[in-house]
C-alpha cells in the first residue's frame, strides 16, 4: 500500500465527503449540464460545495472532476479539448477549500461507454484516463479515486492509467445487480472485483453509489476479507422516492449514520456518502464516530 495511505489510515476511520452533483444542482446546475464545466464557469459555487464538506468535518474531500474525461466532456458542446484545464481547476478549487484541514482525492468516473458494445477500445479508454490522471496529478492532488464503475474491465484500465502518476489510487465500484444486489452490472462479485483491482495496482478498493447504506455492510465485509485492506465506502442516501413528480431522498442524516458503526466494524477505513447526501450527513457521521471512540 502507498505510504501516504498507510499513514492516513493510522487515524481511521477517515471521514470523506458527500455528494457533489446533487449539491451543485441545489446551487443552480441544470439537468443535462455537465457539472465539471462549472470548474471554469462557476468556480465559486464549486468552492462552496468543497468547503461545506471541509467545514462539516471531512478529512478527505473529492473534486468536481467525476465526468472530466474526453468522452463525457464531448457531450457538452466541445469541452473535450479542455480536459486538462477542467481537471486542473477542479483540483485547485478543492485544494484551496481544504487548506491544511483536509486532503484532496481527485475523482475519476466512468467514460459512459461500454467496452464490449464496441463503442470504444481499451486503448481509447487508457488514453483518456491517462490524460485525466496526468492533469489531476500535475495540479497537486494527494490521491486519485476511481469511482462509480460498473464494468471491472474499465475500472482496471482506469487504475493502471492512474497508477502511472505515482499517486495513491482508490478504486470503487457499484454493486446493484443480481437477486442479492451484490454483483456489479457485469455480474462480478466483491471478491472478483477486489482481486482484479488490487492486481491492477489499486491501494484501496471500495464501493459507492447504487444503493442505500444498509446494503453496504455485507459488501464492505466481503471487500475487506478479499482485499485484506481497509475499505472505501460511500453509500447513497437510500433510493430516491417520487413526491409530486419530483425525486427526493428520504433517508435522514441520522438514519444514515445509524449504520456507520456496523460499516466500520465490517472493515471500512474511509466512510462518506454518495448521491443524496450532503454536509449534514458528514457532520452526523463525525458525531457517530466520536461517540464510538468515547465508549
Amino acid at each position: 500500500m502507498h505510504p501516504f495511505i498507510s499513514e492516513l489510515l493510522n487515524k481511521k476511520p477517515v471521514i470523506t465527503d458527500g455528494a457533489w452533483g446533487t449539491q451543485l444542482q441545489a446551487l443552480g446546475l441544470n439537468p443535462g449540464e455537465v457539472p465539471d464545466i462549472w470548474n471554469l464557469t462557476n468556480p465559486e459555487k464549486v468552492f462552496h460545495v468543497a468547503k461545506s464538506y471541509v467545514d462539516a468535518g471531512s478529512a478527505v474531500i473529492l473534486t468536481n472532476t467525476f465526468g472530466a474525461n474526453r468522452f463525457r466532456l464531448a457531450e457538452a458542446e466541445d469541452y473535450s479539448k479542455k480536459v486538462r484545464e477542467i481537471n486542473k481547476r477542479g483540483v485547485e478549487i478543492s485544494l484551496s477549500a481544504a487548506g491544511d484541514r483536509a486532503y484532496v482525492f481527485a475523482s475519476i468516473g466512468p467514460s459512459g461507454k461500454i467496452l464490449m458494445m464496441g463503442d470504444i477500445t481499451a486503448d481509447d479508454l487508457f488514453f483518456a484516463f491517462s490524460e485525466q490522471a496526468e492533469a489531476i496529478a500535475n495540479a497537486g492532488a494527494h490521491a486519485i479515486v476511481i469511482e462509480t464503475m460498473s464494468d471491472i474491465e474499465e475500472a482496471v484500465i482506469a487504475v493502471k492509467a492512474a497508477k502511472q502518476t505515482g499517486l495513491p489510487v482508490v478504486a470503487c465500484m457499484v454493486f446493484d445487480s443480481g437477486k442479492d444486489k451484490d454483483r456489479t452490472m457485469m455480474g462480478n462479485t466483491p471478491e472478483e472485483v477486489a482481486e482484479k483491482l488490487i492486481n491492477a495496482g489499486a491501494d484501496i478498493v471500495g464501493s459507492n453509489c447504487g444503493q442505500g447504506i444498509e446494503t453496504f455492510v455485507k459488501i464492505c465485509k466481503r471487500l475487506y476479507e478479499a482485499s485484506k485492506r481497509p475499505v472505501w465506502i460511500k453509500p447513497n442516501a437510500g433510493l430516491p422516492q417520487v413526491v409530486d413528480g419530483k425525486a427526493v431522498y428520504k433517508v435522514s442524516p441520522q438514519d444514515f449514520a445509524k449504520y456507520v458503526p456496523e460499516i466500520i466494524n465490517s472493515g471500512a477505513g474511509f466512510i462518506g456518502g454518495c448521491c443524496g447526501t450532503n454536509p449534514y450527513f458528514i457532520s452526523e457521521i463525525k458525531r457517530t464516530i466520536e461517540s464510538m471512540k468515547s465508549v
Binding site: 464490449m116 445487480s177 443480481g178 452490472m185 455480474g187
Partner: peptide, 12 residues
C-alpha cells in the same frame, strides 16, 4: 432472471 447471466451474456 435467476442470476446465471448478467449484462455481458445478454449483450452477446
Amino acid at each position: 432472471d435467476c442470476n446465471e447471466y448478467f449484462v455481458p451474456e445478454l449483450l452477446v
